[in-house]
Write a protein that binds this DNA or RNA. Structure first.
Lengths: 345, 345
DNA sequence: TTGTACGCGTTATCAC
DNA sequence: GTGATAACGCGTACAA
């Protein structure tokens, strides 16, 4: 069971163990022939360098820790795909730990990462929220947040520009000719819900449309509750002709509710989501949504982190634009009386 | 930047470093008062034990490596949720690495895991397939496969019983009164496609229905190609009244195709999936499918692995039953002439 | 109850 | 070019 070490190889090759170490790391300081012989023996004995021992002496483990709210969340999973790719391409291995949005677990995981002497830490969240963890700044290793904020300006982060993206999405609906546009938000959405709501209002203001509070309702960012919440909008005397949803999962719930009420999308109601999850192309009908460059966000954040390991970083807060993807769940409202007849311009 | 070590604490507390070591690990061999004093000092100095050094000396790292085909795949992500939970609850940290079904990467990752001296390795795949990796048996650490097979009987694994589950699903359609039932398979599905197809045929045989090759088509297990493949079934002179799909993503593609052809589910065609992904409850209509206990599979496999670390394991190959979840995408066929009029019993 | 000495596997710093 | 030797931070046998 015991793995072979450079000392075993040294004995076999009748050299000292530092020579083996040098040979195996292609040091120019060792005679080519000796090096070849050593490498052969190492190969034959099935030698694998011990990254643990190396990490102890070099004080660099080539590992990073990824703290995620839930890896089962499709948004987070896609983010993480980018993280893993960038990390591995640069020789790093990634520890991942769920914290389930539980502050205590956040703390424990962060401590654990420190004990494991990770070179850096990444925090991934599906929603832009403020991180609970207070000990972030007294952390000994660099940290980059994806979709999290932290009061300390020195903490680096990557996130989507929710305000602008949401405004664009709602403007799309306005351009199609909608007047009564609802916002189906996420009361657990923290900053990103506030921002998307702000974008929604901006779009209305720019179009000189009134803001009607009755058209704003909140779910929890998941389909089931979104479905229930959507139903509340059907009870309004003058029902909206379009809904802008906090995210795709919310939109999926909204679609269910609409179909259950025997209404059609987009003819009766247009629906716009946010995120562009993989499933968004396969809802019924395919969902118009704001694409977040999830993989790229993961890669960028990781790249920032790796750069922080070599020196100080200039850009600390990156904010990326979303991209509106128009599919089939949005169209001009179909006239049904005095309310919303208006051509798109 | 340098972290404090037990030696630093020892100096401060005017004891030797082994005493500190003992005190911090609650050894009974140290005087309670000294222990308390030491713990206080450790606390004050912000001491974090170095898991790297500990791993080197104890030859146990409390880490496991998870090799996944793609963490962005929702099935794998849910599996992994169970893995991470069980591992963390038992004090283990998890390395995760994608291999993208690339044998070379599989090899590299496995080697890397060995160099990091993980205590055990877990391989997660969304499809039951045969692992390429030949060096599995000469691995120095225990390994457990989820949804992978390996010729060597000593390799432990957890997987779903695809044959029985598929048979149950198809029997459900038969019980509803369907006679022309298609199988929309996955040509990249390896063993699990073969098994699910076998279950499909078994159900037909048991019902004394003829097997009609024209009703069997194959996609790649993802929605887009499933959609295209589904269209081929529409070109048949006598179109099926039900489709059993390799997995939920395939079923989602099938639903798209059906809707695009202006047909209704389940009235015109019933659709049954496999996996019960989170989205399955929110397709239009909600999908009848076979639930795989994904979280539990992850937890079980991890538990097996951890048990292997302490001693030999008796059960090596676990095969779990699936559970049919009947939702709204399956119903008795609606009569449309001589073909399929039959009451469910 | 505590301290001394050593080892884990590797790299770094000296000599030679 | 190569070999001693020390060091990384911790755990453990043994002595005190």
């Amino acid at each position: 069971m015991k793995q072979v070490s450079i000392k075993d190889i040294a004995r076999e090759a009748r050299v000292s163990h530092p020579t083996v170490s040098r040979a195996l790391r292609d040091s120019p300081l060792v005679k080519p022939e000796t090096a070849r012989r050593i490498r052969q023996i190492a190969q034959r004995m099935g030698y694998r360098p011990n990254a643990v021992a190396r990490g102890l002496v070099t004080r660099k483990t080539w590992t990073i820790g990824a703290l995620v709210t839930s890896i089962a969340d499709p948004f987070t999973a896609e983010l993480f795909g980018g993280v893993e790719e960038m990390a591995n391409d640069n020789g790093y291995s990634v520890f991942v730990a769920n914290c389930c949005a539980d502050p205590d677990r956040e703390q424990r995981v962060l401590r654990l990462f420190q004990e494991r002497r990770v070179d850096g830490i990444l925090v991934l969240s599906s929603r832009v929220g403020t991180l609970h963890v207070p000990l972030l700044t007294q952390l000994k290793v660099p940290i980059v947040l994806i979709n999290s904020e932290h009061p300390d300006r020195f903490v680096h982060s990557v996130m989507i520009d929710s305000v602008t993206s949401a405004r664009t999405a709602v403007q799309h609906l306005i351009d199609l000719g909608h007047r009564r546009i609802a916002y189906l938000g996420d009361r657990l959405g923290f900053r990103s819900d506030i921002d998307r709501f702000a974008g929604y209002r901006e779009a209305l203001t720019l179009a000189d449309y009134p803001f009607e509070p009755e058209l704003v309702v909140h779910g929890d960012g998941r389909p089931e509750e979104a479905r229930r919440t959507m139903c509340r909008l059907f009870e309004l005397p003058d029902r909206p002709t379009a809904v802008f949803c906090y995210n795709d999962l919310t939109a999926i719930g909204a679609l269910r509710a609409i179909h259950a009420h025997r209404l059609r999308v987009p003819d009766d109601i247009s629906v716009v989501g946010f995120d562009d999850l993989a499933v968004a192309s396969f809802t019924e009908p395919p969902l118009t949504t704001v694409r977040q460059p999830k993989q790229m966000m993961g890669r960028m954040a990781t790249e920032m982190l790796l750069r922080l390991l070599t020196g100080p970083q200039e850009k600390t807060q990156v904010r990326l634009p979303g991209e509106l993807i128009v599919r089939e769940s949005s169209s001009p409202p179909v006239s049904k009386g005095p309310t919303g007849t208006r051509k798109p311009h």
